[in-house]
Design a protein around this nucleic acid. Structure first.
Lengths: 237, 237
DNA sequence: CAAAAGTCAAGAGCACTGCTCTCCTTTTTC
DNA sequence: GAAAAAGGAGAGCAGTGCTCTTGACTTTTG
């Protein structure tokens, strides 16, 4: 992987592959996932359509490349925002949420590609799950740090069904953090909720109801942190 | 609209339109929105493709019909679940959320069609906004009833930016309910959060992390009600 | 009742898609 | 230098949405 592509052919191949991805990305940004056509990419590349198949096995594989790129982009943005700069857990959480939103608003088609309806007949290959976890890992790290610092009030949480508790425990272990299951549940609720809000915004379900999307999102992000830090309501149901 | 189709032609037209929608629905359920092909519908109908265009102007229009159907189906299910049967607001809320999920799990392609990525190049016409609001109206009615019954603890809510407060006021007015803005904000957070959780479940982002999806969703639905009834955390940030 | 007007199925056709296969040239390897 | 591998070009297949024309049918009108 660290080999410098010495041979002329290997260089050409690397350049060609990069060009294909670059043009595909721009087509995706402009026309969306459905408008991504291998033939159009080939045209823009000044090459015949069948030639592209020497580099990309299928349209789905090209989409997979773009999906991984998207996950990495949003993951990196979230990691930067989630970095501990001593500003406190709530600030970090809100910053992370806002970084997620900024990326999504700037790249709506990418967001739709990875967080919207799955492409029909398309099964995400295993290479996508790791990049997909980056952004969530960043969010979880904020919660874990806050828990370690004693900034999260466990309170008297409602009892959890055993199956759910086991799943939450497994998640905690998968992310290698020390957070009790009820807090994990809250974090998951807050996190999926953030995506729910974002999806509603980007997919038009808030159209006509919200005028200042930035302000609205920030309010919800703060609320979602309160949800994590103090829990939904006081006691069990 | 209530006219019985007297003429033979009108009857034939109504029957044909219904058939097209029926077959399109089954194709949608089987192959998803992208797999919906007018030609395939025509084939199943035993008719040539161009004939379908006498009844449906375009593929997009057919999709619009299916979208409206989907909104109406989920709206009706939610309305039934949200009905006041004296079981208490939390039970009604959880029931409504579960009804939403039941519909979504039973009709994943319909869910993806309306709550997933918007179909590219497709702008939802105005006829869809009213059916789209049904399901949310049902959820809001539960919150409004709970507020009227004094079951919601306003607490000391965090101050809201003026723009956000105005939007929440407008929503409250649009739904013709008497609920203070902070509660409206909580309800929106809980509601979009429910969709976020559902989208993550249906679109595979919880794959591998959750074993009992039903139990998990129910826990989150209860938590989201606590969030509405008692607010995220105790005091302002 | 007959003619005019409206409606509809069929078929051909256009421009596009993903993808495969064969040819031929260029580059790499032995 | 010869064999092998790789890449590009082009034709072709099966499918798509959509348009247009043609001929047959039904409804309305004079």
């Amino acid at each position: 992987m660290a080999d410098a592509p010495t041979t002329k052919r290997a260089q050409a191949r690397a350049a060609m592959t990069a060009d294909i991805k670059r043009i595909a990305r721009s087509h995706l940004a402009e026309h969306g996932a459905d408008g991504l056509s291998l033939r159009a990419v080939a045209r823009d590349l000044g090459v015949v359509s069948s030639a592209v198949y020497r580099y990309v096995a299928s349209r789905d594989e090209l989409l997979t490349l773009l999906i991984i790129d998207a996950y990495d982009a949003v993951g990196e943005a979230a990691e930067r925002a989630a970095a501990d700069d001593g500003a406190g857990a709530e600030a970090r959480w809100v910053r992370t949420c806002c970084a997620l939103r900024s990326w999504a608003v700037a790249h709506p088609h990418d967001y739709a590609l990875v967080y919207g309806s799955p492409v029909p007949g398309y099964a995400a290959p295993a290479d996508t799950v790791d990049p997909a976890l980056r952004v969530t890992r960043a969010a979880v790290s904020v919660v874990a740090d806050a828990w370690d610092a004693g900034e999260i009030d466990l309170g008297a949480p409602a009892p959890l069904p055993a199956v759910v508790r086991a799943d939450l425990e497994a998640m905690r272990a998968a992310f290698a953090v020390e957070v009790p299951a009820p807090v994990m549940a809250r974090a998951l609720l807050a996190w999926t909720g953030t995506f729910g809000h974002l999806s509603w915004e980007l997919f038009g379900h808030l159209h006509g109801g919200v005028t200042d999307y930035d302000a609205f999102f920030e309010v919800q992000a703060h609320a979602s942190w309160q949800l994590i830090a103090r829990g939904p309501g006081a006691g069990p149901a």
